[in-house]
Design a protein around this nucleic acid. Structure first.
Length: 424
DNA sequence: TCTGGGGTCCTAGGACCC
DNA sequence: TCTGGGGTCCTAGGACCC
């Protein structure tokens, strides 16, 4: 029985690389992409990292050093990144019968039936094709479990000599490598666990592998034990090729300025309901529960207030007005005058397939109701003519509180008018 | 009211991921 | 003036039931 082999393909500095596809002049220039509201830096090119700037740094704190080195910042442009991502995933699917899209910039592939000594070459080929066809640089890690593939990817990125692809199967004894990798680099070992392990003098992946099963289970639950098995080369985390509907859907944004008026909070909550319930319909689900929360800015030295409240619908639904209605009641209940609010959020839960709802004597199921027809019609119109063609008045007209995106790149791939022009 | 075993369901919180 | 937005899984403990 031959062992299973997994690869993890990860796009390098993905958001930055997407911006660069259409701006070749930015090659070798420090590039960064900002969070919503242009707040902090969420993606950095290696030139930007070399300036000592870290992921999560507030933009205003590092603006000077970026200017000094002629670096360039972008507001995040998710329409672009999502589009490039699906092109990458499509290409990857030609290299494997089993592709798991793990995140917007990462995918697992199974590479069974390729000889161990050829695996790295195969990985390099994947890298070459993605660069040639899409223009995105990727790194490839190969190992006998998903966790090892992840770790191999870390090695591929970290050491230039591997040229972007590292395979644990190139080693007779992978412990020769694991002895040199800090445990904190492992997928599934976060800050807390790494600290606790350090206290017990467990510093490298090799140290961790040697720990007793009982200790790992009692200190790190079954989750940590799975990670340990995976690092020993025994697959314990399966490939997930099918698309799973979300069990909760969250929509929230920070405001562009401190909001003090109830009306503005209600508008924001309404808009987030529109977005969340649209996502709900996209996965053909209904939700039975809605939670709303609001909070002041914890970074400010001023009066603080935060609260959350939830309520259940009589019958699970995906009819936006019902959620807007509920969210307004929740926000009104929590609102206290005199605070400067930073953020409002909406979370949908108790999610189930729309067909699973049992109608009763008093209530029609959403799927059988004219409410569904109405929402489907709105979705269809917005899909064709632009996402705000039909909106809800309760979301407000001016929406001054909406987030800032002052450094947005054009919608190169998703808007005709922004298509790049090539001189003939 | 307490005793005790055994079970389910729900929620809050912790830990992790991108 | 300026500090992101989504997610998942697991466990412990409480409420409730027999």
């Amino acid at each position: 029985l031959s062992k299973q082999v997994f690869a993890l393909v990860d796009c390098n500095s993905f958001y930055c690389s997407c911006e660069r596809i259409f701006r070749p002049d930015l090659e070798n220039v420090p590039v960064g992409v900002l969070s919503n509201n242009d707040g902090c830096i969420v993606a950095l090119s290696k030139e930007m990292k070399a300036l000592g700037i870290q992921r999560g740094a507030p933009a205003y704190k590092v603006q000077n050093i970026i200017n000094k080195h002629k670096g360039v910042l972008f507001s995040s442009n998710y329409a672009l990144y999502g589009d490039i991502s699906s092109r990458v995933m499509n290409t990857l699917s030609t290299f494997t019968p089993e592709l798991e899209v793990y995140s917007i910039d990462e995918a697992f592939l199974t590479l069974d039936g390729i000889k161990s000594e050829d695996l790295r070459k195969y990985g390099l080929e994947i890298k070459k094709i993605i660069a040639r066809d899409i223009g995105i640089p990727v790194s490839v890690g190969i190992g006998e479990s998903k966790t090892l593939a992840k770790l191999a990817n870390h090695v591929a990125k970290k050491y230039n000599k591997f040229a972007g692809c590292f395979s644990f199967l190139d080693y007779d004894d992978r412990n020769d490598v694991l002895r040199y990798i800090p445990i904190s680099k492992v997928w599934g070992i976060g800050y807390k666990h790494a600290q606790r392990l350090k206290k017990n003098n467990i510093k490298t992946v090799y140290d961790f592998i040697k720990l007793s099963e009982d200790w790992v289970k009692s200190e790190m639950t079954i989750v940590g034990y799975r990670t340990q098995r995976e690092l020993r080369g025994i697959p314990a985390i399966e490939m997930e090729m099918t698309y799973d509907p979300k069990k909760q859907i969250l929509s929230s944004r920070s405001f562009s300025y401190p909001v003090e008026e109830l009306d503005e909070l209600l508008e924001a909550a309404s808009l987030y309901c529109v977005r969340a319930v649209k996502k709900l319909r996209e996965q053909k689900s209904v939700a039975g529960s809605i939670m709303a929360y609001l909070t002041t800015n914890p970074f400010k030295d001023e009066a603080q207030y935060a609260n959350y409240q939830s309520t259940n619908l009589v019958v699970p639904s995906a009819y936006t007005p019902e959620f807007i209605d509920a969210s307004k009641r929740l926000i009104r209940k929590m609102f206290r005058k005199g605070y400067r609010y930073k953020k409002v959020g909406i979370m949908l839960s108790d999610i189930q397939p729309e067909g699973d709802v049992e109608p009763d004597l008093f209530n029609v199921a959403y799927i059988d109701d004219k409410r569904k027809t109405i929402m489907d019609t709105i979705d269809k119109i917005n899909g064709k003519l632009g996402s705000n063609t039909v909106s809800f008045a309760s979301c407000g007209i001016t929406q001054n509180w909406k987030m800032k995106r002052e450094l947005l790149s054009p919608a190169y791939t998703t808007r005709w008018s922004d298509l790049r022009k090539v001189k003939a």
